[in-house]
Amino acid sequence: MIELKGIWYSYDGEEVFKDLSLRILEGDRVVLLGPNGAGKTTLLKILNGLLMPQKGTYLYKGIEINKKSLKDKAINKWFRREVVMLFQTPDVMLFNPTVYDEIAFGLRQLGEYDEERIKEEVLYWAEKFNLSFLLKRSPFELSGGQKQKLCLACLLVLKPKVLLLDEPTANLDSKTTHWLIELLWSMEITTLIATNNLNLVSELGNKLLVLDENHSLIYEGDPKEFFDDKGNLVKASILPCINKRSIAL
């Protein structure tokens, strides 16, 4: 479904990814693990077509995603509808005057539904995310957890095929975190979740990608196998150095 072939990406003269390749199949629940600065957000933005690699190929369902192809209105609309991204800071995704308008934004952009149908969809997703009583409120007045839910509702209302989530549990309490995990598993959607929370990896997905601090993909496979070998955590700079000794002992 998603394939990166030999991606090279640099930012401000600093190389982030060198010859990075990976494949994500339809229905995969992928967790992207790595220390701060490993390039998790950059990788998600590349997969969302927001950052363009200097070299290499990005294929989504066999179609090459690059600046040129995204200039094509039909491809852009199709891709933006199918591959959506939840940003780490929900505030940056919200700009409409009311919660209702925020959820309706994507559907209105699509231009495929009349207002009556849009209302039905908005009410359905607001109900599902327990936001119905907030529909007339401004998104900026909501709590952190509510904003996160609203952002998800805005994305899922489009019925996307791939959901990219950047540290989705970073600002959530444990109750909302578990609500989110259950929600993600209840949906038939391909997910790629960036996190540095080791405790949640096995709950968030069934496939693990690990980036180390040099932005290299050092592991791709089953999460359990990765965690069985504690040396992997040190290799990925996920465990603090002090633990290297205890592992050696």
Binding site: K45, N48, G49, L50, K73, N76, K77, R80, R81, V84, M85, F87, T89, V92, M93, F95, F105, G106, Q109, L110, G111, C154, L155
Partner: peptide, 16 residues
């Protein structure tokens, strides 16, 4: 950083 994220988020959600 935030401005970049705002613009990226709009681009990501914008379908036309």
């Amino acid at each position: 950083r935030l401005l970049k994220d705002f613009r990226d988020a709009l681009e990501s959600r914008n379908m036309g």
